[in-house]
Amino acid sequence: MEQSWRQAKGLFFTLLSAPLFWLVIFFVAPLSIVWLYSFGENQGLVDVAFTGTWSNYGKIFKGLRWLDFSDALYVNLFLKSFWFAGLTTFICLVLGFPVALAITFAPERWKPWLLLMVMLPFWTNLLVRTYALIAVLRTKGFVNMGLESVHNGINSVSGGALGAFDPLPLLNNNFAVVFGLVFVNLPFMILPLYSALDRLDRSLLEASLDLGAGHVRTMFNVVVPMAGAGIASGILITFIPALGSYLTPDMLGGPESQMIANVIESQFKRANNWPFGAALSFILVYLTFIAIALQGVFQARSQARSQGGRA
């Protein structure tokens, strides 16, 4: 079993062929085509000519001036997507860290159930969950209905002191998009955080307490630096899907909360400008690669730092 692939080339390539075939047909080939499109131009209604032009990329950065993004429509779109994804990631981290910590320190027999509760929404179709969110957030949704009944209750006691109920605008705006993205992506943050925290040597925490640090200082001096790699991968796998989100902004957002994926979709469909859509897609892919590379660098550094404890 321990032999190198060189000693069993036939077996190696037989086993490799299926995933390789899959990757080539369903990943490399379509991505290459889209990549070629991004250097093409529309010819008439349906034809695209591969002219090797950079004009699609040029269009993305059109109006961009040094330190001034106000006229660059598409750069602004990317920035807004970054902002939404970043805010989502931050909220997920702030909410997810205490949850992961609580699961880590929960009694052993509760852990599978708590993890199940984190994963359960995950097993439901995204569309179903999003419609459920609409039912919660809309003007006549559960939140507003609940608030209204409290409002009316206070009014009936106080004789109408609060006036008429004004429903909160919870749907079809930026708030709804970020809320939805947090809702969808929270498990992606909790699970890597949990796995990093659960591996943490408990005696390190006890040592910190023993040496005079309280729980808060132990958290920032020991837990956070030791869980650094888990935090980084949690941030990454929350940020990347959030950045490319399509369904959530499409269904929960308003006209002002379009993210980059929605624009890409409209380029391919309504605008019928495949080359430009392809260029936008590839900018997104490149940004994702940069994020992964950054995380890789961070992880390598943090691993080098924490190796001593486990050796």
């Binding site: 006890e206 910190s208 030791m226 404890g309």
Partner: peptide
């Protein structure tokens, strides 16, 4: 002094 020493690796 802990059995595993619990020296902070970072």
């Amino acid at each position: 002094v802990f059995q595993s020493y619990a020296v902070f690796p970072h």
